[in-house]
Design a protein around this nucleic acid. Structure first.
Lengths: 215, 215
DNA sequence: GGTTCCAGACCGACTGGTCGGTATTAAAGG
DNA sequence: CCTTTAATACCGACCAGTCGGTCTGGAACC
């Protein structure tokens, strides 16, 4: 094989991703992408058959990172507690921690960007997004369903909807943070979501688990 | 005076608004707008000096409707209870009611659409958005500050952040509803937010107000 | 020599925006 | 009452520039 083009490829994707996040896909011309990435048009179309293929590649990479983020956080939470409710609380806490470290002036989610320009993308590209968000619903929903069993909630609540709410808080907080140019909003709102779960499952009146789990 | 052009003007704005909401501003060409509105290019540029002026006009109209929505809901809630906490709960309930009536396949917020393409708009246009969202924070934050006085919350909570959370839930729920093509998400998530407030301010242990307000 | 990576001139389609002109209306002047 | 006038509403051909995408060709590596 000749020389390695993967660096160039990711350079194009990196440049495109940040441009897309603050001006949208349609306004992000190939010319600007290649200028930002320091390559030429020939190079661009060597790596991506079309601009649409770039969009797909970027969102797929983003979704993979998102999934890794989810699984990594869950694994860490599972290592820190046996109780599913505590795991979720810890998980949200971890997300909050990382949100605090957002130095970026422009926090934002590529999924949200795409979904507000949905007509520009083909079905497969949009499917990547729904699949990624469904993963959060399924994984957290299952944990919360267990939590509902062990810790009777003070108000009736559907575990899946509760899981969705984390995504909702993330996405909404990004929007607000962007308009205010104040990244701290994300961490603050995640904290409120955590409080909500705390209140919903009154921490003390836990039903003893069937097995000998400690907490 | 010549014949009335306001109908044409709003027709252009209506067409543009829906197009912008599902493909973004940059991808919404003047040609498509005028095709959808049934007017010609000359007419378009007669009413709007530039495409950017159209963007500004649309977001201003949207923000006015948003503000009216806020004030109308608050006025109704204030008519239904004297207690600020109850007013907020009723207000959220009203929003939920209206979200249930969303027949649109594409629920969505123009503010979010703009903020994910912020580079395309000038400062004044973006300012309209921050002002509109700040109004929600101020109005609801004040109510919630009163609520905190009368009903000690079970967990420490900043009234303004709590107010922000309604916006967050709205915006986040829109994103999720769009990806799933399932408008019901919005009402569901608003219901969860209402539950949160309910839990936070335990409904029964209210501190009697200084004056003789009943609730 | 064949394959992959990169370069940049080039193309037709489409973009936002302009401009000269027509149609419609209401008020003013007779 | 009828005409004039002026202001606004509307039309569509046209323009310069930008868009995504193609193509030919050379450079680097096996």
């Amino acid at each position: 094989m000749p020389r390695d083009g993967r660096g160039t490829r990711t350079a194009i994707m990196d440049a495109a991703e940040t441009l897309i996040l603050d001006q949208g896909f349609a306004a992000t011309s190939v010319e600007r992408i290649i200028a930002a990435a320091g390559v030429t048009k020939g190079t661009f179309f060597h790596h991506f058959p079309s601009k649409a293929d770039l969009a797909r590649a970027i969102v797929e990479r983003y979704a993979e990172a998102d999934r890794a983020h989810l699984e990594d956080g869950l694994a860490r939470a599972e290592g820190l507690s046996r109780d599913p409710l505590q795991q979720v609380l810890i998980f949200v806490g971890l997300m909050r921690e990382q949100a605090l470290g957002l130095d970026a002036e422009h926090p934002g989610c590529l999924f949200a960007s795409y979904c507000y320009q949905a007509q520009l993308f083909d079905e497969g590209t949009l499917r990547v997004i729904t699949d990624a968000l469904d993963a959060w619903r399924r994984r957290l929903g299952a944990k919360l369903a267990e939590a509902v069993q062990r810790h009777p909630p003070r108000l009736p609540a559907d575990p899946d909807d509760l899981a969705d709410m984390l995504t909702v808080v993330f996405e909404g907080a990004f929007v607000l943070a962007r308009t205010r140019k104040e990244a701290a909003v994300v961490a603050t709102q995640l904290g409120l979501y955590r409080d909500y779960l705390d209140l919903l499952f009154g921490a003390r009146e836990a039903v003893p688990p069937t097995e000998g789990a400690r907490f």
